[in-house]
């Protein structure tokens, strides 16, 4: 799961970078990251993020580190932060966000409102039962429901993209309720985290 998230986020960042850079400026690896995201001190690239997690503490420290031009930890990389919860689960054939996830989505909404430079990709998924295209539509509804709750906190539409994979990208491979309940989900994917 973690490696997949990392892979996806690195891929998403790569996409973002290529979208942002002028053709001549494109550089491989961390140099480009620094150039685009460096000022914020938030986008610790890939592997370094984990190492930093042990040394960096609060937001203030992170800020201080950032001002000294060093890598700093974003709350997005803090496993203790509520923002580390990036998957929410749904009932069968439902796109209604359950109450237990509202606090998590509030935290993401507030974070994104405070960090207008930060983008998030909201992915909707379903279990394998029933019709495939209906499931794509259901995943779309789930992603839209989460998007609305996040936007409520003053997040710009520019910061959010949604996509539905329906039943095409299960995380659990079984054909029973245990697998299905894990697959009925929305994932929040932050570029670079």
């Amino acid at each position: 799961m973690n490696s997949k998230m990392r892979f996806l986020s690195v891929a998403a960042m790569a996409a973002l970078i290529s979208a942002c850079s002028a053709p001549g400026e494109k550089k491989p690896g961390g140099g480009t990251d620094e150039k685009i995201f460096g000022e914020q001190g938030e986008q610790a690239a890939g592997e370094q993020a984990g190492a930093q997690a042990e040394t960096a503490g609060t937001d203030a420290e992170a800020q201080a580190l950032a001002e000294r031009g060093e890598m700093a930890m974003s709350p997005l990389d803090d496993p203790e932060s509520v923002l580390s919860n990036r998957t929410i689960y749904f009932d069968y054939d439902s796109s209604k966000v359950k109450e237990e996830y509202l606090d998590i989505l509030t935290a993401h909404g507030e974070y994104l409102a405070e960090h207008p430079e930060q983008a998030v990709r909201i992915e909707g998924h379903t279990d394998e039962r029933g019709s495939r295209e209906y499931n794509i539509a259901l995943g779309d509804r789930r992603a839209q429901a989460v998007k609305r709750l996040i936007m409520f906190h003053g997040v710009s539409t520019d910061q959010i993209t949604t996509v539905s994979y329906g039943e095409e990208r299960p995380v659990a491979m079984g054909h029973d309720e245990a697998a299905w309940s894990e697959n009925r989900r929305v994932e929040l994917i932050y570029a670079g985290h």
């Binding site: 295209e133 794509i136 539509a137 779309d140 509804r141 839209q144 539905s164």
Partner: peptide, 9 residues
């Protein structure tokens, strides 16, 4: 076809 460009499938 199905589009959700207007917010809903």
């Amino acid at each position: 076809l199905t589009l959700s460009k207007d917010g809903n499938p």
